[in-house]
Amino acid sequence: MKYRNMIRLILYDIRYFFRQNRWKWLFAFMIHVFLCIRTFHSILFYAGSSDLLSALWQTMGGAREYLLSSDSSFQLPAYWFLFHIYLFFLIGFYPAGELYSGNGQALVRTRTRAMWLISKCISVVVNIVLYYGCFLLTMLIGNLVCGGTVIPRGGIIGLAGIRVAGKSVTELLTAFIFLPVCVSTALGVMQVVLSLFVGPVLSFMLNIAYMTASVFWMKPFFIGNYSMLYRQSWVSGNTNLSVTGGILRCLVLASLSFAVGMLLFQKKDILPES
């Protein structure tokens, strides 16, 4: 009985999310198309032939380690940053918006607040996976249109100079897809929980600041590093940023955010937004 209630609640959340955020999803698709066109144009211009991994690298690659000095210039990797902050914008406003704009009608129809929060987190995860799925599909279609392969010829991502030959499919899938999704999920859950207490705008800002700090500091504490392919241990050689460590840290962050959020949400008064 409880499971059926949970499933109904999750389905409600997914439907409500899409109904409320249709325009945001359309814009997300437009951003993916823009990234796809820009990526393949750049690859074909510089490398002559395209492949899926090189295309994904253009967005997911991020930036190499930043070495601070008085002569250095700190710049954010624009497309990696755009990809992630739009995702945070897409998911971050939903729970607080649904809670306050609906006057708690959905909340009182759940059995417990815990169920409500779990359902919100699950629906956010579903949306993150769909966002990545949409992006991958767009890149796949772009690659097909350009007549590219999946693995680069010669096993080297030319524009980045990274060797992928010899890597298993599992390793490549983990590095290119699974780990970035884990990072986005952990940060998404954290943002969602924060948004209930500090507001959606501040939680969005905090996430942006965290991602910026991840680019600045190549440390395992800043899990944004794991979503940048340049910084993963198999590319950078930094053993502190191993794939396993990344997945564990993402799990810890998501679990901790959820647990703390649950404790605080149980005691929270749902009053109209001032």
Binding site: N5, R8, L9, L11, Y12, R15, Y16, R19, Q105, A106, R109, T110
Partner: peptide
């Protein structure tokens, strides 16, 4: 309709 889907 959307709200009724929660408790069905």
């Amino acid at each position: 309709r959307l709200l009724s889907c929660i408790k069905k």
